[in-house]
C-alpha cells in the first residue's frame, strides 16, 4: 500500500538537548535508526524516552542539537511534511467524539490532503488495507469510543499505517494490552519493516518484548544514552542493574535463543543474601 519506492528513512540525532517542564530531560543524545531496522528505546521512568518521541513528533519543537531525516533537518519540515514521513502510536489515546474506526484510520490521510478535500478512492483503499492488516476490518463502522483498549489500539496502529510513514515511532504502544495483543501488534510492525523497509523507533517497558523484536537498543538513563548496541550487547546484568537500579536475572530463552530478562523481587534478593550466595550474574556467560 505504501509507495514501494519510499522505504524507510535514515534518522540521525546528534547532540540533542531538550528541556521539559523546567528541567533538562535530554542531554547530548546521539542516536541512529536505519531503514528496515527496529530500534528499542529502553530506560526507567523519567529517563527521557517519551520526551525523545515527543521531540521527534513535533510536540516539543524547542530543542537544541540536530535531528535529520535522510539528511533533511526536522526544523525545515512543515508539520504536514513531517507527518508524511513519520507516524506515532502513543500508549493510549481517547477520542471525545464518536468517530467510527474507519473515520479514525482515514485521519491518517490528513497530511496527504489539502483543505476542504475529501478522501479519494486511493485514500479509502489505503485505510481499508491498513485495517485489514491490523485484523480490525470488522470494526470499521464501530464507534472508537465503544471499543476495548486492545481494539482501539489496533485502530490507532492502522491509522499510523494509513499515514504511510517511513519512520514509525512507538511510545509504549502495548503497555495496556494483554500478551496476545502485544505480540500481534509487534508482529505487524515486524511485517511492515520486512515488506517496506520502514524504520522503527520504539519505547518499550517490557524488556523481553524488546529482546524479541528489536535489532538494536539504546539504554537511556537520566536523559543521557547510557549504553547502545545490539540487544545481546546491551541487555547484560551489569547494564540493566545499573540503569534500572534493581536486580535482574538474565538468561536465554531455550526456545528462541533470545535473551530472557526478569527483575528480582525484594524477597528473592533477601533470600539470596540470607543464603550468602552472591547476587546472580548472568548465566549465559557474559
Amino acid at each position: 500500500m505504501a509507495d514501494p519506492g519510499a522505504g524507510g528513512v535514515k534518522l540521525e540525532i546528534d547532540a540533542l538537548c531538550q528541556a521539559y517542564g523546567g528541567r533538562r530531560a535530554l542531554e547530548d543524545v546521539h542516536l541512529r535508526v536505519e531503514p528496515a531496522e527496529i530500534v528499542g528505546l529502553i530506560g526507567p521512568n523519567g529517563s527521557g524516552k517519551s520526551t525523545l518521541i515527543k521531540t521527534l513528533s513535533g510536540v516539543l519543537p524547542n530543542y537544541r542539537g540536530s535531528i535529520r531525516l535522510d539528511g533533511r533537518d526536522l526544523r525545515s519540515l512543515h508539520r504536514r511534511e513531517a507527518a508524511r514521513i513519520l507516524a506515532v502510536v502513543p500508549q493510549e489515546i481517547s477520542f471525545n467524539f464518536p468517530f467510527t474506526a474507519l473515520e479514525v484510520v482515514l485521519m491518517g490521510r490528513h497530511s496527504h490532503l489539502g483543505a476542504f478535500a475529501f478522501e479519494s478512492n486511493h485514500d479509502r483503499a489505503v485505510a481499508e488495507e491498513a485495517l485489514e492488516r491490523c485484523g480490525a476490518h470488522h470494526l470499521a463502522s464501530r464507534a472508537v469510543q465503544e471499543l476495548s483498549s486492545g481494539e482501539r489500539q489496533r485502530i490507532v496502529f492502522a491509522r499510523a499505517m494509513a499515514q504511510e510513514p517511513r519512520l514509525l515511532l512507538l511510545d509504549e504502544p502495548v503497555s495496556f494490552l494483554d500478551a496476545r495483543h502485544q505480540v500481534e501488534l509487534y508482529d505487524i510492525v515486524r511485517e511492515l519493516v520486512e515488506e517496506r523497509a520502514a524504520s522503527v523507533l520504539t519505547v518499550l517497558h517490557d524488556l523481553n518484548l524488546a529482546a524479541e523484536y528489536c535489532d538494536r537498543i539504546y539504554l537511556l538513563r537520566q536523559g543521557r544514552i547510557d549504553t547502545s548496541g545490539t540487544t545481546e550487547e546491551v541487555f547484560t546484568y551489569e547494564n540493566l542493574t545499573r540503569v534500572f537500579e534493581t536486580d535482574f536475572y538474565v538468561t536465554t530463552n531455550d526456545l528462541t535463543g533470545k535473551l530472557l530478562v526478569t527483575p528480582l523481587s525484594g524477597r528473592a534478593r533477601d533470600e539470596l543474601r540470607r543464603q550468602r550466595r552472591p547476587t546472580p550474574r548472568d548465566t549465559n556467560g557474559r
Binding site: 513535533g58 510536540v59 507527518a83 508524511r84 489515546i93 477520542f95 468517530f99
Partner: peptide, 12 residues
Amino acid sequence: SAGEEDAIQLGV
C-alpha cells in the same frame, strides 16, 4: 478529537 499531541503528529 484525540488531543493536541495526537493532532500535531497527524500533521496539524
